[in-house]
Design a protein around this nucleic acid. Sequence first.
DNA 1: CATCACACACTTGTATACTAGTCATACTAA
DNA 2: TTAGTATGACTAGTATACAAGTGTGTGATG
Lengths: 236, 236
Amino acid sequence: MLELEMIKPDAGQSAREYAYQLLRDHIIRLKLKPGQPLSENELAAKLQISRTPVREALIRLSQEQLLEVLPQRGTYVSLIDLEQVEEARFVREQLEPAVVRLACGRFTADQRIQLESNLILFEKYVEEKDYSKLFDLDIRFHEILFTGSGKERTWAIVHSLNAHLSRIRMLSLASEYNWTTIIAQHREVVEAIKTKDADRGERVMREHVSLIVLDQEALIRAHPDYFKNSPQGGDT
Amino acid sequence: MLELEMIKPDAGQSAREYAYQLLRDHIIRLKLKPGQPLSENELAAKLQISRTPVREALIRLSQEQLLEVLPQRGTYVSLIDLEQVEEARFVREQLEPAVVRLACGRFTADQRIQLESNLILFEKYVEEKDYSKLFDLDIRFHEILFTGSGKERTWAIVHSLNAHLSRIRMLSLASEYNWTTIIAQHREVVEAIKTKDADRGERVMREHVSLIVLDQEALIRAHPDYFKNSPQGGDT
DNA sequence: CATCACACACTTGTATACTAGTCATACTAA
DNA sequence: TTAGTATGACTAGTATACAAGTGTGTGATG
């Protein structure tokens, strides 16, 4: 019943971390469906580790709102919560332009090169239509901006919030995504950083983040049982 | 050796939640010193619960960067990390003004009353010099702004970040705090919300957040062993 | 046929036993 | 004396056993 794409744990990685990474990835990529029940015992058996590390991974995921743990009843993959999605967008809308502003002031040549090589890869995978890689590169672009500006912990927050956005993005057909617009905006951000034009960088990033939200109505219609508070998709 | 102010667990509260709340409170209030080693066994004995819930609480606290867990070596209360403090301030600087802007647009009469009664209590405790209550009320004021604007999850982020700021505030003598300025700013924020003057609200809140940072140099000199990367305070 | 009660098969929460790694200390040997 | 090594007392990580609560299905009973 429960199907997991098994991946060998990295060497030196704890069982807890292994379970966490694997489950998070499955949830974000919708290999585990919103609302789907999970069992600590079943997971432990599938991953061939004991309940303890599985359980610790589940607790962490529930803190990140990717799971809902109901004591003595069960654990479920969280339904997609549009409130949560909106708040993630809101937070990014505030943080990302501010970070770009910082980056305009302090990015070194090395750091700019990191961004530019990201752009080059981006163009390559757009041609190859490798949407999975594009998702990763998109995330990586923003990560470079944060870490390069000395805001590693802030990035951790944004990264965690992204989990909820990711599921929506995953739902929409990847091809719907206007990668051309995204890459153009990324390029303009890099341009702004190069010329140390903080105002421009901030403005472009603000526009960029606003693109996160796509046609949610259509997605809900297509997958009503994946969403919280939607007519068909009960609260499980 | 290890001293904890025991508090009875709330009814219906899980052992894990009990341990988490108690330890978090102790860390924030500096009853557990930065750098101090903790032992899962010892904590379990003191709290009269088993290692499992203690351990799960410790994991959560380490995710919030309040603890550092070194496998097979030990668990330590995190040293105060000024980078972390600065990032907390940075994030609040972006989020809080934006939330006030929202509040100016959508706060109801009821919600304004909540803010005003907060102000009244504030004035009362300023007179009584009850600094502990003032800390709580200050936090509560900001919480009202976030939750009233429908940003509960964003508040959860800010609240978590506050843990690091709190330790610094706790270090400084409470009386040093310029509560008069704080209350004046709070009052002006409420005024802005009343008159729906979003620009003013945003501006005041920005000034307000910038006050978070106080004279860190003096604090480091007084407690070098509490800080990360300070000459005396080793990385333990 | 409907309804209530109870047993049972689950669930997660907690306790405990065991594993494996770290570090300091004391002892041995050069 | 000193360097090297074994030993033992810690640590956190993992496995497993048990407790306590939930929901469902079944069967007796009206």
